Simulated assay, not measured.
Amino acid sequence: MGMLRYAIRRLLQAIPVVLGIITLTFLLTDAIPGDPVSVMLGPSPSAQQAAEIRAKYGLDKPLWVRYANHVVSILQGDLGRSIYYSAPVERKILERLPVTMLLMVSSYAFALATAIPLGILSAKRRNKPADHISRIVGLIGVSTPSFWIGLVLIIVFAYHIQILPATDLILPWAPPGAVSGASTRLDVLVASARHLLLPMVSLGTLQMAAIMRIERSSMLEVLQQEYVKLARAYGVSERTILRKHAFRNAQLPVITLVGLQLTQALGGAVLTETVFSINGMGRLIITAIQNQDYPLVMGTTFVFGLVFVVGVVLTDISYAYVDPRVTYDGEN
Rank of each mutant, 00 (worst) to 15 (best):
R5D: 08
A7L: 13
I8D: 00
A14L: 04
V17Y: 09
L19I: 09
L19W: 06
I21D: 08
I32H: 09
I32R: 15
S44W: 08
S46H: 07
S46P: 08
A51C: 06
E52V: 02
R54N: 01
R54A: 04
A55Q: 11
V65F: 05
N69P: 12
V71T: 10
Y84W: 13
S86T: 09
A87L: 14
E90Y: 15
K92G: 03
I93V: 15
E95W: 12
V105C: 07
S106V: 11
F110W: 11
T114G: 09
A115K: 06
I116S: 05
P117F: 09
L121P: 04
K128D: 14
R135F: 14
R135G: 09
G138Q: 03
I140Y: 01
G141S: 07
T144F: 13
F147N: 08
L151V: 15
H160M: 11
Q162T: 13
I163D: 10
A166Y: 14
G177A: 14
S183Y: 02
L189A: 08
V190L: 12
L198K: 06
M200N: 03
V201M: 11
L203K: 03
L206T: 09
R216I: 01
L220A: 02
V222S: 00
V228T: 07
L230W: 02
R232H: 06
V236L: 07
I241F: 04
L242F: 02
A246N: 03
N249D: 01
N249F: 00
P253S: 09
P253G: 07
V258Q: 05
V258R: 01
G259E: 07
A265Y: 00
G267H: 10
G268D: 09
E273F: 04
M281N: 02
Q292F: 13
L296K: 05
T300K: 03
F308P: 03
V310P: 07
T315W: 02
P324G: 00
V326K: 00
D329H: 11
E331Q: 15
